[in-house]
Nucleic acid binder design. Structure first.
Length: 266
DNA sequence: GCCCAGGGTGTTT
DNA sequence: AAACACCATGGG
């Protein structure tokens, strides 16, 4: 079933799906294919709307998924005056929306992301879905936390995640037995949520922050990875980024993409 | 062959 | 608390 969803003024589908926040979308021709909440979807950006071909045909779901209801102009209003680099990063990347992705998929994805590169992260996640997800038409769903928790580490060797496999298992087990109260994280302060997530082996401040920012929509997280580290070292005084305010996570995503697209600066 | 990738853990100073 | 080796794997 094909539906049309009206898009906000500043929205760039290409940037949104290729900015490092998600790993299961791929572009062929003009359209993006992916799997969201167990449903296949093909999405194309038109003049002022998205054309979405999916069995998941609830318009409100997609408005939420692409975060079209949030007021990005208000969130970024102080980005332009903060710092010349953030100014440029915002100007070039303001078409990005922070998606509302599945909590568990986001946590797993960013556990896999550690000390890894984006093409390989996508490959490992693809292996995980092919081997342990449910078959849906020509694709596979993301395996549930429960189903992973019932596996052994040897079972996961086929996904080629290396040393990260034991971290995925630890996350699945601690969440399944409620040692980590995953669903509560949405309701509590970011600072506390980061501490709880770090009870999982292989989850440190960066993976926890990415999970909360890209999964739980906590915009006051500011994950510091190798790319952001370079930006901070060159263009910010230490911890200055905290003054950006409660939407600093959005600034972080702009800066991350700016640093990747401007190697000449470093 | 080497270096690095959206880091984190465990051990040693 | 700061520095360091180590972790698996594959792309550049």
């Amino acid at each position: 079933m094909i539906i049309k969803v009206k898009t906000p003024v500043f929205f760039d589908l290409d940037k949104t799906l290729d900015c490092g926040q998600c790993f299961r979308w791929s572009k062929t021709g003009n359209s993006w294919s992916g799997v969201v909440n167990g449903y296949q979807a093909k999405v194309q950006q038109k003049s002022d709307f998205l054309e979405i071909d999916s069995d998941l045909s609830d318009e409100l779901f997609w408005i939420k998924y692409f975060d079209f209801d949030s007021d990005y102009e208000k969130m970024i209003e102080n980005f332009y005056d903060f710092n010349p680099i953030l100014n440029q990063a915002t100007f070039e990347n303001k078409g990005i929306r922070i998606l509302n992705q599945d909590y568990w998929e986001t946590l797993c994805s960013f556990i896999i992301s550690q000390n890894n590169n984006i093409p390989r992260i996508k490959g490992i996640i693809s292996n995980l879905c092919k081997n342990f997800g449910k078959s849906i038409k020509e694709a596979y769903s993301f395996p549930s936390c429960k189903s992973i928790s019932l596996l052994s580490i040897e079972d996961l060797s086929c996904i080629k995640a290396g040393f990260r496999s034991k971290y995925i298992m630890d996350a699945a087990r601690r969440i399944s037995n409620f040692e980590v109260e995953f669903m509560k994280l949405k309701l509590i302060k970011t600072e506390d949520a980061i501490k709880i997530l770090q009870k999982i082996k292989g989850v440190g401040p960066k993976v926890a922050s990415c999970t909360l920012l890209y999964g739980f929509h906590k915009f006051d997280c500011f994950p510091v990875d190798t790319w952001i580290r370079k930006v901070l070292d060159k263009s910010f005084s230490e911890c200055d980024y905290k003054k950006i305010g409660k939407y600093m996570g959005l600034a972080q995503l702009y800066l991350f993409n700016w640093s990747r697209s401007h190697p000449e600066y470093f």
